[in-house]
Design a binder for these strands. Structure first.
Lengths: 195, 195
DNA sequence: TTTCTAGGTGAACATGCGTTCAATTGATAG
DNA sequence: CTATCAATTGAACGCATGTTCACCTAGAAA
């Protein structure tokens, strides 16, 4: 038996990526075999190579796509003028966006060491672009005298670590709604930059 | 050839754990083979089983020891009375302690998903005890009216994520000394809790 | 000098890995 | 009804995996 009824490249392709995201996030890149991904899709291992040249590229593509989508989403956002409002907007965007796709976020943070050096550099560059988006908000606010930040780069890293940390404990249907969480974190973020 | 001159159990044992920490942190638990750990120690793979019953237990022991040592170190610290000073003390302790052993910290955060369920529960319980140390400081400060924290648990998680984040970017001999980093982070932490 | 044993070897086991490829099939186009 | 071809199979490749175990030997003890 070869191709089953109704199965096509443009169906299987996304299924492969979805399965890979779920399994990589759950068990880690190195612990997940191509055969296991294939089984999840309902296909033999060999068929995966119609959709990715190899396992490493599959991981890299997932991470690159995640970061590129994040950057595009951020660029499409309509930003306030006031630096304080811009920072609030960033905080809420970051939390909302990251809570919406925890598995991709997890992979993009945890699997960096499994990237081939060339791929690592590319991914790091993308991440840096996102960090710079926040850093430039802090710069503007500092010039405007709204923020009190001894070191802009450190404040950037501190805020992103704090905000992304939500993903490690947040549970859907838990004690607090996403909005409430974002409110509270924005409050802390504002305090952290002295505003 | 069997035992080489001067090599004993109480030498090889620690060497095995050191090699495992380095390799697990660098490449990830799943990506490191017992043979590679053995090679790092200068021994055959079979010899590792004189020092650990299996690979999973080796990982678990490293994580458990890390967290137990962290808790002991914290308990041994002499704490100020004033809640604000206690929080400052915690922040500086956390950064100093974690920067001192980045590889163990990395493993304890990244390899949770590679723990067998029973081991996972134990490790999580230890981590929770450490988080509670911070949370009780926040509780005291809140009662004393020194902090303004809408949600104590969230503030705890936010602060720990922020502080631990230093490990992801700090480089020895970089732009800032550990003291300077701790100063700046304490400043941000204080602001985040409204003090 | 002989005995004993802690500490280690090295080969073997079954299993799984990423990847390739000739063969096969179901759906589609003419 | 036939020819075509994209999609997939299933077997095979060589190599790595965690773990076990019979065997060995340097050095301490008697």
């Amino acid at each position: 038996m070869a191709r089953k009824t109704g199965s096509h490249s443009n169906i299987t392709g996304p299924l492969v990526r979805q399965a890979a995201v779920r399994l990589f996030a759950r068990h880690g890149y190195a612990a997940v075999s191509m055969r296991r991904i294939a089984a999840e899709v309902g296909v033999q291992a060999g068929a995966l190579y119609l959709y990715t040249p190899d396992k490493q590229t599959l991981l890299f593509d997932l991470m690159r796509e995640h970061l590129e989508t994040l950057l595009q989403a951020w660029e499409r956002e309509q930003k306030p003028d006031d630096p304080l409002a811009r920072l609030e907007h960033f905080c809420r965007f970051h939390i909302a966006y990251h809570l919406e796709r925890p598995e991709s976020v997890f992979i993009a943070y945890m699997e960096l060491r499994n990237l081939a050096p060339d791929n690592f550099r590319i991914v790091e560059k993308l991440r840096r672009r996102y960090e710079d988006a926040l850093e430039s908000i802090l710069a503007d606010g500092q010039e405007a005298g709204v923020f009190n930040v001894p070191d802009r780069r450190l404040a950037t890293m501190a805020l992103i670590a704090m905000l992304t940390g939500v993903n490690t404990w947040y549970q859907e249907g838990g004690r607090l709604s996403r909005e409430r969480v974002a409110d509270i974190y924005w409050d802390m973020a504002r305090g952290a930059v002295g505003a």
